[in-house]
């Protein structure tokens, strides 16, 4: 049996959350997420934007969080407590650098169900809220996890959240000549034919008009 056991994952997630909760500007707890028929723990962190850079370095150095999975930016124009939200997904893979012998890498094939302590692979989710601003920005972690590099580029390109200290920011998914300040996942940009009821009720399309026809040229 090579699959990690649920109990060891939950107990080591709780250990990590307790340690992380004691850092300044961080509140952390374990969330039970479902995955098909199983329950899996996710260590959730709420970090203030001022502390983020320090916390990120500590996560990498002290807590062996070695793998940046994804960065998501969300625009909440109508929300009361947050206008911009940035969510980082990390994995603590728990793998060690494989040893060499005779010029060949010897993989460490451990029995995952026997892993303990800091070797247990974990999921982390870091949330940062930003207030009402037209120029949302947060510290870059590109130099800590290189995997965050293109994620940050994409988040800026599509959502418009800037990353301070990011080297080589540019458009990655949209054309290079896209107008400055145009970020399609911001909520003021509506999809045309947004109301799908209207589309199906009016199969001939006589009444059909883009929802933003008055505002967009």
């Amino acid at each position: 049996m090579s699959v990690i056991s649920q109990e060891s994952q939950i107990s080591s997630a709780e250990d990590l959350a307790k340690k992380l909760d004691s850092i300044d500007g961080v509140s952390s707890f374990v969330d039970q997420r479902s995955s098909g028929t199983q329950i899996r723990p996710v260590v959730k962190l709420q970090v203030t934007p001022e502390n983020w850079r320090e916390v990120a370095e500590s996560l990498y150095v002290d807590y062996a969080v070695d793998y940046c999975s994804m960065i998501t930016g969300i625009h909440w124009p109508d929300s009361k407590d947050k206008n911009w939200e940035i969510i980082y997904h990390f994995l603590r893979t728990g793998v060690k650098n494989p040893p060499h012998s005779d010029g060949v890498v010897q993989p460490i094939i451990t029995n995952n169900s026997e892993l303990k302590g800091s070797d247990v692979p974990l999921e982390l989710e870091v949330t940062i809220h930003l207030g009402d601003t037209r120029t949302p920005s947060v510290a870059s972690v590109q130099d800590i996890w290189v995997g965050a590099d293109w994620n940050e580029k994409e988040t800026w390109d599509l959502v418009g959240i800037d990353f301070e200290g990011h080297h080589g920011m540019r458009r990655v998914l949209q054309p290079h000549e896209t107008p400055k300040g145009y970020h399609p996942l911001q909520k003021q940009h509506k999809l045309r034919y947004h109301n799908f009821q209207e589309m199906y009720d009016d199969a001939q399309g006589f009444k059909r008009k883009p929802v933003d026809s008055e505002r967009v040229k």
Binding site: Q38, P98, V105
Partner: peptide, 23 residues
């Protein structure tokens, strides 16, 4: 590269834990 990291075993979902295998 010799790294034993597979989401199917380290963050198990579905019924991979019921079957007998190693990545």
């Amino acid at each position: 590269g010799g790294v034993n990291h597979d989401i199917r075993t380290s963050h198990p979902y579905s019924v991979y834990s019921e079957l007998d295998w190693t990545p």
